[in-house]
Design a protein around this nucleic acid. Structure first.
Lengths: 136, 136
DNA sequence: AGATTGCTTGACGTAGACGTAAAGGTCAAG
DNA sequence: CTTGACCTTTACGTCTACGTCAAGCAATCT
């Protein structure tokens, strides 16, 4: 299966534009070990793999994961193919902890969303009252 | 309805301990206008109202809300009793935006949780393979 | 050739969210 | 009355996640 129509690649600014981040962010994430674009000479070349990983990272950021937490997860992404049993067991334990943490955050989020909608309801009923007593 | 057994209050360090934050955090939040404990002389006295609001704030933080965003919400909490129609309408629009944002975060969170569990599944099947080929 | 455009690596700056002394007031216990 | 345990404010320090020049290399347009 010869690599046909070679897959798309990106330069820093191309990928930055597409993801809605700055080039600084991409370089920073590379320096932090979150992504590892190909280097042709000194120039970075981003592949679909990096693109996917960036979307993973940005998603994590949106609901409050720190870069350190995110790095841990993306590293496990690679480690999951490990051939060492002990290693895999450690990973599973950690993944379970992370899963618990995410579920907690999810619960916090849902409850906050409820509160917000409750406030909105209060606004609406206040408006009703106003409309009733003062049908301007 | 005479206020019977007067409700519980907290000092900074008491409330901090109970919430698992530092006194610095409480003072900082007050300075930022997120809470407004009673002042008896120069000393802060926290009431159930502050306690509740802090739990709201901490919940928001856990899934990535900034203090600025949180402040906006807690302020609306008070503003929902407004008597100005225009004001209430503005509030409702903003609340809807916030609601949308939270739903987006929730979606991001769920998808990340899925990914994490997928990685865990990969670990488990790797372990299966190992157990099959090398029943140590 | 010279200018423009885009890439690179430093290196210093900044906003948000606190941490961490420093310096001092207050009140009960010894 | 001093010690100890709290409380206070003021102020500078720190970590994270980048922003913002600066200086320079490389390819392309004029």
């Amino acid at each position: 299966m010869p690599t046909k129509a070679r897959e798309r690649t990106w330069t820093v600014s191309e990928l930055a534009a597409e993801l809605g981040v700055t080039t600084r962010t991409l370089r920073f994430y590379e320096a932090e070990g979150l992504i590892a674009p190909e280097r042709r000479g000194t120039v970075r070349i981003f592949h679909a793999r990096d693109h996917g990983r960036m979307r993973l990272i940005l998603r994590g950021k949106r609901f409050g994961m720190s870069l350190a937490e995110i790095r841990e997860i993306v590293e496990m992404y690679d480690g999951a193919a490990s051939s060492e049993r002990r290693q895999l067991e450690v990973l599973l334990v950690r993944l379970s902890e992370i899963s618990q943490d995410l579920k907690q955050r999810s619960s916090d989020l849902r409850r906050t969303l409820n509160e917000v909608e409750t406030v909105a309801d209060q606004c609406r009923s206040r408006l009703q009252d106003l409309a009733a007593s003062d049908p301007a």
